[in-house]
Design a protein around this nucleic acid. Structure first.
Length: 298
DNA sequence: GACTGTTTAATCCACG
DNA sequence: CGTGGATTAAACAGTC
């Protein structure tokens, strides 16, 4: 019982589908891919509701991972032992929730018909993994750069996202929306829906995964890659017809798609052995504070 | 054996 | 009311 005060909503089901929750978890980590166990952790730490009946919802979650094309499985490398694969968002699944409801998607994401046959081909995950790898590299190099460039860090901290692409799955995108979901009563007065009390940006994100990348390349090594681009939200939204090339990144500054770390003040700060000592960590909290206005204002 | 991943099926619900 | 998406349950196989 995480808080002295009564947590009115801790036992209420968050208004997110499992797809949303999973996507949040994946989006919350710099590499944009997580093993199943870390997805579990993410959800349980942020949504007290899911600390119970774990068998039920975890089964559902696994079902969703397998059933929905918007999630792709990225195998571990042989030199990266562990259980299960990494899970990532399909690069083209970014617009599923544009109707504003995170309990119900606009439509089910399916791999495009032309490539449907390829969907199961090894190249699918390979390409996606390659894409994610590139993304992670860009982000992490940017994190690294920003950590050593105060002005950049400041910029990233204080400048709101321009017209603001936010990945629809990014927590800040989800949380920031006012829930004008048809049929649902308006949220409590204030910027956030009634359950929003469970949001707490101070809880460390699951950085347990931050030391690996899907290809066994240490993330810190990725930071040395010579990339100079700042961390930016890389639109995952599909460009018609294909996996989007990494778009004009500098134009989309400076929003770290790095998401707020916790949606629950009741979330224990334990379990992941987080210590804010790495550039990633530093930036992650910076990003969180940068996110605050987004979350709070709208 | 526990965990992970896939698949099928039933049910509920929102939307047109 | 039909359709489609979400949830839940369950069975099963593979992996660690």
């Amino acid at each position: 019982m995480p808080r002295p005060g009564r947590n009115t909503y801790s036992d209420q089901k968050p208004p997110y589908s499992y797809i949303s929750l999973t996507a949040m978890a994946i989006q919350s980590c710099p590499e944009k891919m997580l093993p199943l166990s870390d997805i579990y952790k993410f959800i349980m730490e942020r949504f007290p509701y899911y600390r119970e009946n774990t068998q039920r919802w975890q089964n559902s979650l696994r079902h969703n991972l397998s059933f929905n094309d918007c999630f792709i499985k990225i195998p571990r490398r042989p030199d990266q032992p562990g259980k299960g694969s990494f899970w990532a968002l399909h690069p083209s699944c970014g617009d599923m929730f544009e109707n504003g409801s995170f309990l119900r998607r606009r439509k089910r994401f399916k791999v495009s018909g032309a490539h449907a046959a390829d969907a199961l081909a090894p190249s699918k995950t390979h390409d996606a993994a390659h894409y994610l790898h590139a993304q992670a590299k860009l982000r992490l190099s940017a994190l690294h750069a920003a950590a050593h460039l105060p002005q950049m860090a400041g910029y990233m901290t204080h400048v709101p996202p321009p017209s603001g692409f936010k990945h629809p799955f990014a927590i800040e995108s989800i949380i920031a929306r006012d829930y004008k979901v048809p049929g649902l009563p308006p949220p409590l007065p204030g910027p956030l829906p009634s359950w929003s009390h469970v949001y707490d940006p101070t809880t460390p994100v699951s950085m347990a995964t931050s030391d690996y990348s899907a290809y066994g390349v240490p993330l810190k090594a990725l930071c040395q890659g010579g990339q100079t681009l700042p961390a930016v939200p890389v639109p995952i939204k599909a460009t018609p017809g294909s996996v989007p090339a990494l778009p004009g990144l500098s134009a989309h500054l400076p929003f770290l798609a790095h998401s707020p770390q916790s949606l629950s003040p009741t979330a224990p700060h334990s379990g992941l052995g987080h210590s804010p000592s790495t550039p990633q960590d530093a930036l992650s909290s910076t990003a969180s504070s940068a996110l605050q206005p987004v979350v709070a204002v709208h």
